[in-house]
Nucleic acid binder design. Structure first.
Length: 270
DNA sequence: GAAAAGATTAAA
DNA sequence: TTAATCTTTTCC
C-alpha cells in the first residue's frame, strides 16, 4: 500500500526527473553516506541532478552545520530545567538520536505555563502529565488522530512547559528515515514539519515521558549553536488568546532549508 | 455517553 | 484548498 503511494508521488510532473534520477542512483550511494556528516549525507552526488536547474541547493554552503555529531555528549537534565522560552532557542543545533538515526534540530516552538496555546492549559490530565514533570523528558501526543508530535519538557517539576520540535536536518541514518517516512527524497519535505519528526524517529505516544538525558532509546546530544536565528509566531494555534497567538515563540535556524511552512512569518529578532 | 476540536500532512 | 483520521477533553 505504501509502495503505491510512493509511486503515485513519483509521477508528480515537476519532480519526476529528480525522483527518477534518485531511483537510478544506486542505493550504495545513499547507504555509504548515512554515517557521514550532514553536508555529505545530503549533497546531491549525481551531476545529472545538479544539472537540473529546478532543484534548489539542499543545504547552505556555509560551514555552520558541517560538524560531525560524534564529539558531542548527551545533555544533562539541568540543561532542560529552565523556562521553555529560554530552552527553545538553545535547542537549535542540538542533536536527537535514536539508534542509527541522528537529526539536528532546526525549528522549535515554546509552550509555557499560563499559555492559552499550551496543552497544560487544562491542568494535569493523563495525556499531559509529562508536561508537568521535570524538564528533560519527552512529551509525545497524537495530533489530528494521526501525527505523533515530539516535545521536550522544560522547566522544573510542577511547571507545565515544553518545546515542540517542528523541523530537523538529517545527519545519520538517511535510509532508515526515508523508510519510515515512506519517501525516498533528500529534500526538506523529508523532515520539515513536526509530524515528520515523530515519524522519522519511529516513536509513538508510548514514548511520552521517556527521559532524554540518559543513554539509550531517544537522546538529546549537545551540538553547535547556530550563527543566526529567526523568530516568529507559533503555528496552528488560532484558538488561543490574541496575546499568545501573537507571541514570537517560534525559533528557527536562519538560512536552513529544513524549516516547515509557513516560512514567511519568520524574521530576524529585533 | 456524545460531540467537537485539534501545536498536521499530502495530494489536487 | 481539502480530505484523511482518531484521540483527548469537555459538556450534557
Amino acid at each position: 500500500m505504501k509502495r503505491s503511494h510512493r509511486f503515485k508521488r513519483s509521477i508528480k510532473p515537476k519532480k519526476s526527473l529528480y525522483i527518477k534520477l534518485t531511483n537510478s542512483n544506486n542505493e550504495q550511494d545513499i547507504t555509504a553516506t548515512t554515517s557521514m556528516t550532514l553536508s555529505s549525507s545530503i549533497k546531491p552526488s549525481s551531476s545529472l541532478i545538479r544539472a537540473n536547474s529546478n532543484l534548489k541547493p539542499q543545504i547552505p554552503t556555509s560551514s555552520s552545520s558541517l560538524i560531525s555529531f560524534e564529539k558531542y555528549a548527551i545533555l544533562s537534565q539541568d540543561f532542560f530545567q529552565i523556562d521553555a522560552l529560554d530552552l527553545a532557542p538553545r535547542l537549535l543545533g542540538k542533536f536527537l538520536r535514536r539508534d542509527d538515526v541522528v537529526l539536528q534540530i532546526t525549528e522549535v516552538e515554546a509552550y509555557r505555563p499560563n499559555d492559552s496555546a499550551c496543552h497544560g492549559r487544562f491542568g494535569l490530565t493523563p495525556r499531559t502529565a509529562p508536561v508537568f514533570g521535570p524538564g528533560g523528558h519527552a512529551y509525545v501526543y497524537l495530533c489530528y488522530g494521526l501525527h505523533t508530535m515530539l516535545n521536550i519538557v522544560a522547566d522544573k517539576e510542577g511547571v507545565g512547559a515544553a518545546v515542540l520540535i517542528r523541523s530537523c536536518a538529517p545527519v545519520c541514518g538517511l535510509e532508515t528515515i526515508q523508510l519510515r517516512r515512506g519517501q525516498k527524497t533528500e529534500k526538506p519535505v523529508l523532515l520539515a514539519g513536526p509530524g515528520k519528526i515523530g515519524q522519522a524517529l519511529g516513536i509513538s505516544t508510548d514514548w511520552s515521558s521517556h527521559p532524554l538525558y540518559t543513554p539509550g532509546g531517544l537522546e538529546v546530544l549537545d551540538g553547535p549553536e547556530p550563527e543566526k536565528i529567526l523568530i516568529g509566531p507559533r503555528v496552528g494555534i488560532a484558538y488561543a488568546s490574541p496575546e499568545h497567538v501573537n507571541a514570537l515563540w517560534r525559533f528557527a535556524v536562519a538560512d536552513s532549508p529544513w524549516i516547515s511552512a509557513p516560512k514567511n512569518t519568520l524574521g530576524p529578532p529585533p
